[in-house]
Computed example of a mutant assay.
Amino acid sequence: GEEPLTERPGSILPPADFEDAAKTVQKMINRTPTDQEVVSYLLYPKVFEDFAAHQKAYFDTSGLPTYAFFNGLEPEEEIAVEIAPGKTLIIKFLAVGKPQTDGCRTVFFELNGQPREVVIVDKSLKPQDSARRKADSSDPKQIGAVMPGVIVSLAVKVGSKVKAGDQLLMLEAMKMQTSVISEQDGVVKEVLAEPGIQVESGDLLIVLE
């Protein structure tokens, strides 16, 4: 019972605000967007939002072979991932460790022939210990651990005023120390870390306001 359109469908759509869309996309990806990214957002806003969130969490995964991205690797399987022209990573999956009480497992692999390991959350497990809160990568006020390690020192406390570039704390792993700095001005609202505590990559350490 509906009357057919007698004009071009696109002519009855509201005008696209490219400047406003560019500002929205810039907040999602934390940089100036390209024209292609702005158009992609205008055409498929939810898809682009999910894509931007994926890249924030896992960086650019487009170099992974499709089967490896969707299914993972089998033990002793090896893949090559080109991250830039002339730069290729050789990744070999070795094994997965036993379940830990916090619901995590250690994954063992080789990167260009060198042994590596990373701790991941196994979503099929029910943690026996209370899990640490994770930082929301889309919220610049949430400061997370940049790598697994032990907190060596804290430079701030609740109520401390910080500026962009100020050191917040120091992490140590494999006898190497790394400073965690603030990316913006603010006041420390919450501190979830203390010296001597072991943390994993992404664990929430400090919240600003």
Rank of each mutant, 00 (worst) to 15 (best):
T24G: 04
T24A: 08
V25Y: 01
Q26T: 14
K27C: 04
K27P: 03
N30H: 15
R31C: 00
R31E: 02
T32W: 09
Q36F: 14
Y41K: 01
L42P: 00
Y44R: 14
P45L: 06
P45F: 09
V47E: 15
F48D: 04
E49Q: 07
A53C: 07
A53L: 10
H54A: 15
Q55M: 15
K56L: 12
K56Q: 13
Y58C: 07
F59H: 15
D60F: 06
D60L: 04
G63E: 00
T66S: 13
T66A: 15
Y67A: 14
Y67C: 10
A68F: 02
F69T: 08
F69R: 02
F69A: 10
F70A: 11
P75V: 01
P75T: 03
P75A: 01
V81K: 02
E82A: 05
A84C: 08
G86A: 07
G86W: 04
K87G: 03
T88K: 07
L89E: 11
I90H: 13
I90Y: 11
K92F: 02
L94E: 06
L94T: 09
A95V: 10
A95Y: 06
G97M: 06
K98L: 14
P99A: 04
P99C: 10
G103M: 08
F108T: 05
F108Y: 15
P115T: 04
E117F: 13
V118A: 08
V118L: 10
I120Y: 12
D122Y: 08
A131C: 12
K134S: 03
K134Q: 10
P140T: 03
P140G: 03
I143R: 00
A145R: 00
M147H: 05
P148R: 06
V150S: 11
V150H: 07
V152W: 00
S153Y: 04
K157T: 06
K157F: 02
